[in-house]
Design a binder for these strands. Structure first.
Length: 425
RNA sequence: AGAGAGGUGUCCGAGUGGUUGAAGGAGCACGCCUGGAAAGUGUGUAUGCGGGAAACUGCAUCGAGGGUUCGAAUCCCUUCCUCUCUGCCA
């Protein structure tokens, strides 16, 4: 959520930023400023009324104590008049405030000054790349064939149990999941991230904190009976661990990692994007999250990107890093990098990690703050990134490493998987 | 799931309608005392929003939301959470 004081002081910069994010309803900005003025006026109005009521009430108390009932009654009547007036004004204030809140929630975060314009994924910029794309023979198979051939993942059974997009991992397929999760967590904790295991369902307040609500309501599974949402990413519960906290300056940066399944309705997806493991409703992901001093957040963003890049190097996958253009960034993000790996048989770049700096957009909603040297309360910056999302990593690992005698796993996984390759059955 | 008890500041803890934003204690910060430390001692020590150059000041907040009242931490309703017992259960 943007801060109204900032908006008021930087109207044109705000509008430019919104334009970069393809948000062109500028009149909303002007409307918000006008509403804020109105709220201020009404507020001081009601507060003054309340102040005189408070004073008179104390006077009544004093008069009662003295036994001066007559004067007390007179004062009571005064208060009654004031209260009537106050009631009307308070109602008006409440309505305007609601209106204001609903409207300011519609504003996306402003992009960082380095974000380039653009409306579609095609306009993202490749910042760097690494690894080598393997030369596969003509008959190389896409992962959806390999998982059948090696009996690793069964979509049909998943569809029977739940529905499409809920894979059942089996045997070595299941073990590969477990190995990857274990490896990713070890890699993250070695870098100073504290491991968490959060709940997989969150309440409304928590979903609102990281920006899933009200923006992405339809993308989450909703347990209506208990008013809970299945988490679309560990970011939601884990970032909220510090909601409504004032953290000590020495405790920054806060570095957290968590493995969770992620649940996404993916309404509106179709075509080859959803083939095999490319897009599913339930998948495993290890996430890294940092809460940092605002001066450090962009430094930390680079650090997190480096951290993820090294992980992809250990996995020996060909990768590239994209800097997202304004129009392709998420609602809450100020700057986002996407890591993609090349899945050599389907000849496709697949997004496996998204690293973002949200600046104060989330922390403002969650009220995650610290005290600066002057004793003033300031918002932290929040960042997160996947390290990593499993299904597409698995897709690329299977496709890129397929050989005559089986799928050769990268060295770093041998110990975790308990074997150097997945043999043919 | 049923019955009961309870949720107060960083922590413990008092407070059942009227200078209570909240006693007392601990902790913490600064000062005094000390060769240094401990002990002792003095002062200070919540958050949000608004006004003010500042001193300071207004409003709100005693789990959350609503209500009664001139006035609520205190009374009523709703809701969440914690604990104890019973039930159920991995």
């Amino acid at each position: 959520m943007l801060q109204i004081n900032y908006i008021k002081q930087n109207v044109s910069a705000v509008k430019e930023g919104l334009a970069l994010k393809n948000f062109i309803n500028f009149s909303l900005v002007d409307e918000l400023i006008a509403l804020d003025e109105e709220i201020r006026k009404l507020k001081s109005n009601t507060e003054n009324l309340q102040a005189s009521i408070n004073i008179t009430s104390k006077e009544i108390g004093a008069l009662m104590a003295k036994g001066n009932a007559e004067e007390a009654t007179a004062k009571r009547n005064d208060v009654a008049t004031l209260k009537e007036d106050l009631g009307i004004k308070k109602n008006a204030l409440q309505k305007i405030e609601e209106d204001f809140t609903n409207k300011i929630l519609l504003l996306p975060n402003l992009p960082h000054s380095s974000v380039l314009p653009g409306k579609t994924p095609e306009e993202n910029v490749t910042v760097l790349s690494g690894g080598t794309i393997p030369e596969l023979p003509e008959n190389a198979k896409p992962h959806w064939d390999l998982i059948k051939e090696y009996d690793l993942v069964n979509f049909e059974v998943g569809a029977k149990l739940t529905g499409s997009g809920f894979p059942v991992y089996k045997g070595r397929g299941a073990k590969l999941q477990r190995a990857l999760i274990q490896y990713f967590l070890d890699y993250n904790t070695a870098a100073g991230y504290t491991e968490y295991m959060p709940p997989l369902m969150v309440n409304e307040q928590t979903a609102y904190g990281t920006g899933q609500l009200p923006d992405k309501e339809g993308q989450m599974y909703h347990v209506t009976e208990d008013k809970l949402y299945l988490i679309p990413t560990a970011e939601v519960p884990v970032t909220n661990i510090y909601s409504n906290e004032i953290v000590k300056e020495n405790d920054m940066p806060i570095k957290m990692t968590a493995y969770t399944p992620c649940f996404r309705r993916e309404a509106g997806s179709f075509g080859s994007d959803v083939r095999g493991l490319n897009r599913v409703h339930q998948f495993d992901k290890v996430e890294i999250i940092q809460l940092v001093h605002p001066d450090k957040s962009y430094e930390v963003l680079e650090e997190m990107a480096n951290h993820i890049e090294r992980l992809l190097q250990f996995l020996e996958l060909p990768y590239r890093l994209l800097k997202l253009c304004g129009g392709d960034m998420s609602f809450a993000s100020a700057l986002t990098y996407d890591f993609e790996v090349f899945s050599a048989a389907q000849k496709k770049w697949l997004e496996v990690s998204s690293v973002s700096n949200f600046e104060t957009f989330q922390t403002n909603r969650m009220k995650i703050r610290y005290k600066d040297e002057d004793g003033k309360t300031q918002l932290l910056h929040s960042l997160n990134g996947s390290s990593l999302a499993l299904p597409r990593i698995v897709a690329a690992l299977l496709e890129n490493n397929q050989q005559e005698d089986g799928i050769h796993l990268p060295k770093t996984l041998h110990q975790y998987f308990g074997a150097a390759k997945i043999e043919k059955v």
